[in-house]
């Protein structure tokens, strides 16, 4: 017994080091697996609050571009609305019936990272505004990412510039599906993989989100084909995509909630054969 106590006293520094090392390594490994650690995240009150403050200052530097973008989007939406012959304008309700399947929550980016392989964005609306994990995030130019975690007033978004992200996408013209990934090389480009060789692809074709995902609605723009590679081993295309979005400069974003998502997932779970 004496010896054990002596041992602990003698090596107390080393033991403390090992204890803390195990803790931090556990946190690291957890963060690299799919569902991330519950408490080390910028969606908590302190870190979220700090980022909110910083953003309050930074906002002023690009007010003009942000306003321009929003005005442009408004004009575009107005044009669509006025050219549509029926119901939406005439309706007296704020949101007419039949327009409730997909809800849109307005939000703003308060912190954005794009310099590591696993990038996350922090936005300033959380569970109090109805934001839940696994909702899609878009802005006027295209997709941004998927909600990863929420707190009361903030949420973190797994950016499309994250090597873990994998989003169903398709070629707008031909409806061939693939997966959108990022190879951590360039913030302006993402990659579309697993597109079958049958598909006819051309440089300049538009890539949009596919209808298979329950997170994003169909046909949200992503980018344009920049370069096409043929994978000799698998007979699939790997396509380099120039993103429409400038991921280094994000302002206002929209969180998209598919109201029927739960129903679809439940149905799919039930249909799956037992293993």
């Amino acid at each position: 017994m004496q010896q054990i106590i002596n041992f602990i006293f003698k090596n107390s520094i080393r033991l403390l080091f090992l204890l803390l090392l195990i803790t931090s390594l556990t946190l690291t490994i957890q963060s690299h697996s799919y569902h991330r650690s519950q408490f080390v995240s910028s969606a908590n009150v302190v870190t979220g609050g700090v980022y909110q403050r910083i953003n309050n200052v930074k906002e002023y530097f690009n007010l003009r571009t942000q306003n321009n973008d929003l005005a442009k989007e408004n004009a575009y939406l107005k044009q669509l609305l006025y050219n549509k012959p029926d119901t939406v304008i005439a309706s007296t309700e704020l949101i007419p019936r039949g327009y409730e399947d997909i809800k849109v929550i307005q939000s703003k980016v308060i912190n954005n990272s794009f310099n590591v392989p696993e990038n996350y964005i922090t936005i300033n609306s959380g569970s109090a505004d109805g934001v839940k994990p696994d909702m899609g995030v878009v802005n006027s130019l295209g997709i941004v990412g998927i909600i990863e975690k929420t707190s009361k007033n903030y949420a973190t978004v797994q950016s499309i510039l994250n090597v873990k992200s994998q989003i169903n996408a398709k070629i707008k013209k031909s409806n061939h599906f693939g997966s959108l990934i990022w190879n951590a090389k360039n913030v302006g480009y993402a990659q579309l993989i697993d597109v079958p060789r049958l598909a006819s692809v051309k440089k300049g074709d538009t890539i949009v989100t596919g209808g298979r995902s329950v997170i994003f609605p169909e046909n949200i723009p992503i980018g344009k084909i920049d370069k096409i590679f043929i994978d000799k081993a698998t007979n699939y295309y790997t396509i380099n995509i120039r993103l429409f979005n400038d991921m280094t400069n994000l302002g206002h974003v929209y969180v998209i909630e598919n109201v029927k998502r739960k129903e679809i997932i439940k149905l799919e779970e039930e249909t799956k054969p037992d293993e």
Binding site: T28, R36, V40, S41, S113
Partner: peptide, 11 residues
């Protein structure tokens, strides 16, 4: 916590 990076900086 600020960088959303798990335990990388801590380690």
């Amino acid at each position: 916590m600020f960088c959303n990076s798990g335990g990388v900086h801590a380690t």
